[in-house]
Structure formats: C-alpha cells, structure tokens
Design a protein around this nucleic acid. Sequence first.
DNA 1: TAAATAGTGTCTCTCAGACATTATCTT
DNA 2: AAGATAATGTCTGAGAGACACTATTTA
Lengths: 239, 239
Amino acid sequence: MPHRDRPTSFVTVDLVILTVRELALNVLVIERGNPPYQGAHALPGGFLEPDEDLDQAARRELAEETGLDGDTLHIEQLRSYGAPDRDPLDRVVTVCYVAFMADLPLPVAGGDARAAHWMPVNELLQDPSRLAFDHHHLLSDAVEHARDLLTHTTLATTFCPTEFTITQLRAVYEIVWGTQLDPSNFRRKVLGVPDFLVPTETKAPDTGGRPAARYRAGIATRLHPPILREPDTGVDASL
Amino acid sequence: MPHRDRPTSFVTVDLVILTVRELALNVLVIERGNPPYQGAHALPGGFLEPDEDLDQAARRELAEETGLDGDTLHIEQLRSYGAPDRDPLDRVVTVCYVAFMADLPLPVAGGDARAAHWMPVNELLQDPSRLAFDHHHLLSDAVEHARDLLTHTTLATTFCPTEFTITQLRAVYEIVWGTQLDPSNFRRKVLGVPDFLVPTETKAPDTGGRPAARYRAGIATRLHPPILREPDTGVDASL
DNA sequence: TAAATAGTGTCTCTCAGACATTATCTT
DNA sequence: AAGATAATGTCTGAGAGACACTATTTA
C-alpha cells in the first residue's frame, strides 16, 4: 500500500454562489449545524467523496444546498485554500468554486435542514468575522474574480432572467462593479459584440417610460475587445 | 476527534516551472524514481506537510527541485485537480502552481537525485502520454494561463535577465504566443506603460547592428490597456 | 401636456496596426 | 560603403467616453 507514511488531509469543496438581487450582489450562506463555528454563517460546502471529481463534488453540493439542478448551472473553480490552522479542529484543504445564477426563488435546502439564505456581499465583506473559517477570503477572491469576468466574458447574462432588457444587463455591471456606466455607450458596446444578445419579440412590462426591447443571451462567451473597468494608473502592487 | 468517519486524501503540490530558452517555452521536468509511472517524465511536486500552507509547500518544493531560492521567485496558484483515477494507486488531490523564471543555470536537483531538466513545452503538448498522470493537463492549463498573463500583466519581464533589451522582451511575447509582433508598435506600447521599463546606462553587447538600450523591470504589474492577442471573433465555446 | 425611460447620432480623443524613415553600430 | 539592428515618425481606422437629441410609453 503506497504512501502509507504520507500525511493525509480532509478535502472539502466550498461554494460561493452569487446572484444579483435587490440592487446588490448577494451570496448564499448557511448556518452551521456542527462545530467548529456552530451557528455561525458560512459558505455551503462539503467533503470530497472518494469516487468523484472536484467538479462533480461542487455540483453535488450545489444541488444539495440550493435544491437547484447542479448540472445546468455554470460553475467555475476559483482556487484552493490550505493554511494549516484554517480549521481549528482538522487539517482541511478546501477547493473553492464560484457559481452564478439569476435571482430565482430558492427551492431551499435539501435534507440538510440548515437554513440557506441570501446575504449582501458588501455587508459581509465589511467584517471578516461575519463568516466562519477563512470564508471571508474565499468570498473576497470570488467577488474579485466575478468582477474580472464581467470585463472579458458574457458572464453578466447568467445573473439575468432568460429574457432581459439592456438596462437590466447594465444594472448587473453597475451593481457588481459599484460604478455608473453611460447607458448609450454600454448599449452600443454590447450590441456590437456578435452573438452576445439575441433580440426577442416581446417588450418589457411598463416601467413608466418607453417599453424596452428584450433580449436573450446568445452563444458568445468572450468579449473582444473587453469592457474595461478602470482608467487605471498602470501601477499596482499586487501581482 | 472530529470527522473520523470522513474520507481523506493525499494532497500534493505540483509545479509548472516555465522559462524561455533557445527560442522556445520550456518547462522543468523530472524523472520519477518511484511508482507509479517510474522512470517517466513528470512535473516536480510533493506532498503537503501538516504544518504548512499551500504556498509554502510550493516554495519548498521549488527550492528542493531547482536548488533556487523559492522565496524570491514569483509563483502563482493555478488550480487543483482531483479526478478519482488520476493516480492509479492512491486518492490524490493536486494543487498546481506556476512559476516563471529567467533562463538561469540550474543549480540542479537537491538531495533528491532525480534528474531535473528543461524540455520544450510544444514538444510535450504534442502527445499527452509524454508526461505522467494528468500532467499534460496541468501543463496545458499553465501555458494558457501564462499566455493570458502576458496580455494584462508585466509577467514577461520575469522571463528576462535583470537587464534586457526591448527586442528580448518582444521575443518573450513572440515565443510564448507563437506570433510575430511589430517591433515599432511593441516598443511604443511597452514604453508607454508607466513604470513598466526603467532605462539603464548600459548598452547591449553587439549583435551586428546598432546597440540596443537596456532596461530593468519597473514596479508596474498591470498593463492598461492590455496588449491584446487576437483580432478574435467574439464567439467562443469555452466559458 | 409633462414625466419617464428607451434608443440614436455625433464629436473627440486614445490607441493599435501598418509601414516609411532615420540612427548607430560592425565588417 | 554595405549590412544589420535599433529607434523614431506618420498615417489611418476602430472604438471608448461624453453628451445632445429623438422616440414611445403612462399619468
């Protein structure tokens, strides 16, 4: 039996499930039912099973925690965390995944009975102690990743319902980035990307003005050239 | 003792150490001394120790495999791999790191006695079976990541010696990307990024023409706007 | 009608690509 | 001088930011 003498670890897969609702970026959190951090808020996740791949584990957890079909949702591996003291009781290495979804009614927690609910990301990021373990880190990294994805992918449409208006799409960018975008230039930009937006026949319900045309997400996944976020300085301490 | 009933895994940290030498992107590979895949080429790596963080483990392995100071080199976590059958003997989850270095003489393997040497990436990527385990995947992902980094970071300078010419820097881009770049436009671009390149007093040794000015890497880490790689179509199946 | 939101048009500035021209070295 | 490589300059077109203007709805 090989490696009998080698150190082993518990491997978990944790999920940062993001949505845009009520004009804010929200994340799905659960209340922990067991030590450590019993009763505290934490990101959903669970142990990697012996016979599954990391992606499979993430989709399984996603289905268990949200009741949603983990097979159809877009998930993405972010990175792994393995500080020796990140779990006070065990040696746990966690692989973090990010998932993006529209603001759907949550079929809510499966058999797990742990209360799952949305919380605004900005609130949680104020204070690292709002989340158990180093989940503050995971969330912070995931949000930064999502911001980056908006610049060069069509990710924003996954935060929207099946049909949406350009104003709704722009709101996603503005909420996730925390900035204001020029409606006219944004429109020109997104309509100029081939296969990003597909027009539909329907009009948006009245919002007190001219009804907006509705679109569906097209097959494009990359934005070229990207939508840049900052004027920027060219200097940055973070590489 | 918590989680006594939970499945555990071996966690390893593997390294994709890249350099540019002899007009090609090269990666450091070792010859495996133990099963499985004994005698085959593989990426260097090793087991995560109980008391160290993932980054520490990566730096330790880097030092052990190359004899170089792991503390000063730039390393970056790429992603993790955990398919259940990726190691035929054990359940191993591997966290992959990427490191970038100039073409320095390798102080060569530490006590490990495993022969470490450079191999051209393009050769290895031709045939997945050239590397043990799923290391073909790790390498492929790492190379794609490096290509991406060149577009929006100053990474390319880490492939160069302390002092280098703009032509040398351009060669890094051309070799990693496998494309040709206009010397004049490239020059204008990189010199236009504040704090990317710092002029030195010295001139490059003769190459049969006008001697080139030499530069050192500045403190900038991000390129804004990025150096784009493709004219592109806007459509891509890979998100 | 006014108010509100959607959508169009236009001007300007930045910047990338293409490529001509000049500069400085060795032989 | 010829050859080689480095460095500068110029023209053009794509595209982003700013913002004025038009269109279509409800109250």
